[in-house]
Design a protein around this nucleic acid. Structure first.
Lengths: 154, 154
DNA sequence: TCAAGTTAGTAAGCATGCTTATTATATTGC
DNA sequence: GCAATATAATAAGCATGCTTACTAACTTGA
């Protein structure tokens, strides 16, 4: 090992994330789409839980409220989501995908799924499953340490 | 699984990174230090490879050159590193830790090592070793996909 | 009922980490 | 020797993702 930090968990995890984001951007761009990982996460969640508000969305995908607010500004500007004041709670905005948003989500999902296998392509099938299991376990046990913990841990 | 994305490799990796950075910041702050993960990586590398230039440093820890430039501005301002024009190549800046930089690095390193085990504390010892092995393998095979690939893969 | 506390969303600020472009300097090939 | 190319560092721009602080609105309980 050339350097001490190369073996550290934090360094390895950072590099995996760096690679993951890079692959995501490249593949989507190559296919003609302009969508970031967090934007995709928002579309996917709104497709499966239409009508939720921003704080709920942030909790479901483990992002900070403020971050998700600016991401939704973007998706709103792109015409992919709608936000309207909730009749039950005038602080909250109920969100839905637009037709364009839903269409984009459906088109792009198979590509995103391909990307997941591509990203873990360096592992044998058995290793891949084990890596995902351990990563999920770690994310779950570490959830409480996160600044933006998952609201409904699996 | 509540949501599709919760099982995706990219999402899990992002959350691990989020947790990792959060733990790092919290523990160092609690101990009275103000140092980010990338800043620590720079200090560690300069301690082990004194005299290298910025591009070499960036390559060794797999960061973009421009990013590392601003990080070094910070460390310079904090009085932790020195940069002087190389006599052999006037484009390059040879870097060294200052006394303060070296002292901080030595003080903080045991804490950083504790953090690594804390971060992976949700796993059994055997699982932990396996996770690190798989993460290293993935980072290595995925290196070419990264925007800022490691210059000297292990 | 109404004060105290909580929650939704936004704003401003800051660091990370990438992009492209520019400047200065080295190197290479003819 | 010198033109073409490559490299080191910086700058400007942009998105992510956090922080704290604020306003508006809701909930709780004495």
């Amino acid at each position: 090992m050339a350097l001490e930090i190369h073996g550290m968990a934090g360094h390895l995890i950072r590099r995996l994330n760096q690679i993951s984001v890079s692959v995501f951007q490249d593949r989507l761009k190559a296919a003609g789409f302009d969508l970031t990982p967090v934007q995709y996460a928002c579309l996917a969640t709104l497709d499966q839980k239409p009508g939720i508000d921003q704080a709920t969305l942030a909790g479901l995908i483990a992002y900070d409220r403020a971050t998700i607010g600016t991401v939704l500004d973007k998706l709103d500007t792109k015409g992919l989501v709608t936000r309207k004041v909730s009749p039950r709670d005038r602080r909250a905005r109920e969100m839905h995908l637009t037709e364009n948003g839903r269409a984009l989500y459906r088109t792009v999902t198979p590509l995103v799924q391909e990307i997941q296998t591509l990203m873990t392509g360096g592992l044998e099938p058995g290793e891949r499953a084990e890596f995902l299991r351990l990563a999920a376990k770690l994310a779950s046990t570490g959830n409480a340490f996160s600044r933006a913990p998952l609201a409904e841990p699996d």
